[in-house]
């Protein structure tokens, strides 16, 4: 099987986010970039599928600025065979990314299945897997927690609200967007990390793919940081008073109930 995985490099969750001088983007200096956790799950699923189907290959794709090579290497260290790095500007939107990925996959002689994460933990929109599927004119199944694969179709368990699940069946090729719980991504062994340094990563530019910045459909601007977290409020009084005040604060101030 020709298996593809699309990955994204995002700021680590512990990184403090700062804005650039004109609030048009975040300040990317000093950020620790990591492979998005949902994409790790996608890579792991791809490798497991390859292990079950000897002779398969796993190609990992990523579209973004130059720094993403490291994330591709991480995926290669987990066991992917080759990488393709597509150069896009830092501020590329979901649409440009999906178009770039679709154009790249269409250049390949054959593709059977594409894995992605259900969303990237930085943008949080969760659009790319569906956009990509639409551009490739294939089904997309998102928020997948488990899947059974056959050479021509896939049956997925998909998470919906209220703790319920949908069982969805689709013909291959399809895009599968993985959710937490689908698998436990492996820790790359040292020999695999060493081997990954020598695996091939092809680079492509927008021009090679017939796309341009005109394919970008939305832009983010006027970034704002939330107000700094206030020191915790101590709620005093007897238990009845405390409960009353707490609920009032949660409902009216924090708006979480």
């Amino acid at each position: 099987m020709n298996i593809f995985v699309s990955i994204k490099q995002i700021p680590d969750t512990e990184t403090k986010i700062k804005l650039n001088p004109n609030n048009s983007w975040i300040d990317t200096t000093g950020i620790k970039w990591v492979l998005s956790p949902f994409d790790e799950i996608a890579v792991e699923e791809a490798i497991r599928l390859k292990e079950k189907n000897p002779g398969s290959t796993v190609t990992v794709l990523s579209a973004g600025p130059a720094r993403i090579t490291e994330a591709i290497r991480t995926a290669l260290a987990m066991g992917a065979d080759t990488g393709i790095q597509i150069e896009l500007p830092e501020t590329a939107d979901n649409n440009l990314v999906a178009k770039a990925l679709a154009a790249t996959i269409r250049r390949e002689p054959k593709f059977d299945i594409v894995f992605t994460g259900k969303e990237a933990a930085d943008d949080g929109a969760g659009q790319v897997s569906q956009l990509l599927a639409e551009y490739l004119d294939i089904p997309s199944i998102t928020v997948v927690v488990s899947a059974d694969y056959s050479p021509t179709s896939v049956k997925c368990k998909r998470e919906i609200e209220g703790g319920s699940f949908e069982m969805v069946e689709a013909s291959l090729p399809a895009v599968i967007a993985g959710q937490k719980g689908m698998n436990e991504p492996r820790y790359a062994s040292l020999p695999n990390i060493m081997k990954a340094k020598k695996k091939e990563i092809k680079t492509l530019k927008m021009a090679d793919l017939g796309i341009s910045e005109a394919d970008q459909k939305i832009r983010h601007k006027n970034f704002q940081l939330p107000l700094p977290k206030q020191a915790g409020k101590r709620i005093t009084g007897d238990p009845a008073d405390q409960a009353k005040e707490l609920v009032r604060l949660l409902h009216q101030e924090a708006k979480v109930v």
């Binding site: 649409n95 949080g124 929109a125 569906q130 956009l131 599927a133 639409e134 919906i160 609200e161 459909k217």
Partner: peptide, 23 residues
């Protein structure tokens, strides 16, 4: 932006050739 809405809206956006602002 529910599990349903966030799932089909991108495909619809791609079909209509426009961008989608999520969540």
């Amino acid at each position: 932006h529910t599990p349903t809405g966030r799932d089909f809206m991108p495909r619809l956006a791609a079909r209509l050739g426009v961008g989608l602002a999520s969540d």
